[in-house]
Simulated assay, not measured.
Amino acid sequence: MVDPANESLPPVADDRDAPIIFFDQAGTFGAYNGIGHITLSAILMRRGQNGTVKSDEQVTAYLRTNLHGLRALQAAIEGALLIAEPLPQGSEGKAN
Results as ranks from 00 to 15, higher is better:
Ser8Arg: 08
Val2Phe: 11
Leu9Lys: 08
Glu92Asp: 04
Asp15Gly: 07
Gly30Trp: 00
His37Asp: 00
Ala84Phe: 12
Asn96Trp: 02
Val12Asp: 06
Pro86Ile: 02
Ala72Ser: 14
Asn50Glu: 12
Ala18Gln: 10
Asp24Tyr: 00
Asp3Gln: 10
Asp17Phe: 11
Ile21Met: 11
Tyr62Gln: 15
Pro4Ser: 06
Gly27Arg: 05
Ser41Trp: 01
Ala31Pro: 01
Asp56Glu: 09
Gln74Cys: 09
Val12Trp: 04
Leu67Pro: 01
Leu9Phe: 04
Ser8Tyr: 10
Asp56Phe: 04
Glu78Asn: 14
Gly69Arg: 01
Ile21His: 04
Phe29Asn: 03
Leu9Ile: 00
Pro10Glu: 09
Gly93Glu: 10
Ile43Val: 15
Ser41Phe: 01
Tyr32Cys: 06
Leu82Ala: 14
Val2Gly: 00
Ala31Asp: 09
Ala13Ser: 11
Asp56Ile: 06
Ala72Cys: 10
Arg46Gln: 13
Ala18Gly: 12
Asn6Pro: 01
Asn6Val: 11
Ile35Ala: 03
Thr60Arg: 02
Pro88Met: 03
Ser55Asn: 08
Asn50Thr: 06
Arg47Ile: 13
Ala42Ser: 11
Glu7Asn: 05
Leu44Phe: 08
Ile43Met: 11
Ala61Glu: 02
Ser55Arg: 12
Gly27Asp: 05
Gly90Arg: 00
Val12Ala: 10
Ile38Ala: 03
Ser55Lys: 12
Gln25Phe: 12
Arg46Glu: 14
Leu44Pro: 00
Gly90Pro: 07
Ile38Val: 14
